[in-house]
Design a protein around this nucleic acid. Sequence first.
DNA 1: GTTAGGG
DNA 2: CCCTAAC
Length: 600
Amino acid sequence: MEKVVEVEGCDEGKFEVTGLEKSNFVLSSPKHVADPVVYKLVRVDGNGRLVPATDDELMEVEGLLENEKREAHIVADTGQALGCTFNEVSSSGMPQLESSEGLSLSENTEADTEKLSTQLEETVPSSARSFSDDHVTQPGSVGEYLKPLDGPIQGGSSTYAGYINSKPDFSKLKGEICLDNLSIKELHEVFKATFGRDTTVKDKLWLKRRITMGLTNSCDVSTTTFVIKDNKLVKKDNEDGSNNVNLATGKEYPAVVVEYNVDLLNSLSSQIDEHQTISENNVAENNLANEDLAADQRAAKRVRKPTKRYIEELSEAESKEYSGKLIASPKNIGIRPLPSISHARPARNLPLEGRTIITRLDSLGGFGIQVPCVYRVRRSRPRKNVTALLKFHPSDMGMTATFIKRGLDVHGSHMVNESMNKVLEVNSTPGQTPQQFVAESNNEKSSTDLGQNMELKYVDTSGDTSDDNVVTVPTAKGGIRRKHHRAWTLSEVMKLVEGVSKYGAGRWSEIKRLAFASYSYRTSVDLKDKWRNLLKASFAQTPTDKGANSRKHPSMPIPAPILLRVRELAEMQAQSPSPNLSASKLSACGSVNETRPGYL
DNA sequence: GTTAGGG
DNA sequence: CCCTAAC
């Protein structure tokens, strides 16, 4: 009982401290930070027996840690250390420690919701919670994804746990403890087995908790009946709560078990309802609901994390090319007290830089303080989606526009004739028009040489022209330009051949400019590569085979005539590799014609 | 910035 | 298609 009293006193003092810290934030933090480290060391040496600091100090630190943790999410190490320390300390007077911890938690919670703090007389379980938080938080990169969850979890765990846990009455808890059956001795044994050391703590609950945590990897597992998953409070009748799988993300989270007091629970229920869904069975139910809930929570509480929602949406949005990204973000942003978060953690946080970066990211999304760079990176990744979208997009809408554009370009380049205009006018349908267009253009220019009606047949012009945009996709990676595979159409090939014949192989930039003006997505390199491939193909294949060059892949059946031409051109150019520029240009038309005619 | 070549 | 070396 005395303990309790002390705790309360501490609590209040701590309260004050906390308040100060909050106001001071970063400045105050260093001191606190220092403390944690020391404690940590002490703890290691002392096997938990040593109590380095006064209760007040501990409480302060803890409170700080808690707060910061909550805010920053980054603190894992110190937080754990503290938690351990407390636990260890508790060996001597465990109730105090825990209570203090609990108090700190309650405080934190309180900060968010001040009402409940008063309700809490004692806090028991906080240490566990801190662990859980830390773990969750730590995953860093993964955290991006997790964060959304974390936010809820932490908020939920800390807040709810705090409130719920606040019950001083161990008897109740004990009753619920699974390990209850074991005697203290047994528990000690188990404890030793688990941690490799003895413990003097005689409190069953504590032992059980410790053991459970140890087994579960420092998740806060306690005897509770309720487990907080994601955002939800789930009754854990059947589950042991050691590990919960987050359905939404599919990731495993350490289950946070909350020891609760029925009375408190009831009193809190209303609040909980607002933020979390309490359900026995439906965890899955909430995926959708979670977001809303989370958002609400944040709004209500003053959310700390960028919020998973934000992230998720962002990611989605990105994948979709920035559709309507931040539904949730606004709330968060508005609500969030940005400043408080980062400061406390010394080593890890990069207050300024990190912030800046984050901010930047946020700005992209709209706002997200903690929005992780990592996530961003990740997000950018999904090329496929983008590509698909892009591809898809252009086909319908783009076609017409493209076509027109192309027509214009061609016209400008003197490639086209009057028919072009006609075509343009005529074509309301994307698909058809292009064909005509191509056919005509080809006919005019190289009609004789290429000759053949092949052109008409094969001319497919259809899709290719459409998207300039799609072609180039900036990648998150260093490299940027990833062209999605764009099959060469026959028309393109013909143009290429034509261009080569006119300007000569190797003058890719020229060809690109003049002959492929309309195909913005084909670079000179592409032309070169394609030409190379054509050459290869042309030589590989027998020219005799004109009619059908049934190549293996239907995708790119290059008409024999074209291959022939390619071969010719190649041979021809091999003979007269480098005419001078002017000469080549001048002679281009003529030479081509000359050369080819022979062939035909 | 282009071109050639290899991967 | 991508990347790089060489011009």
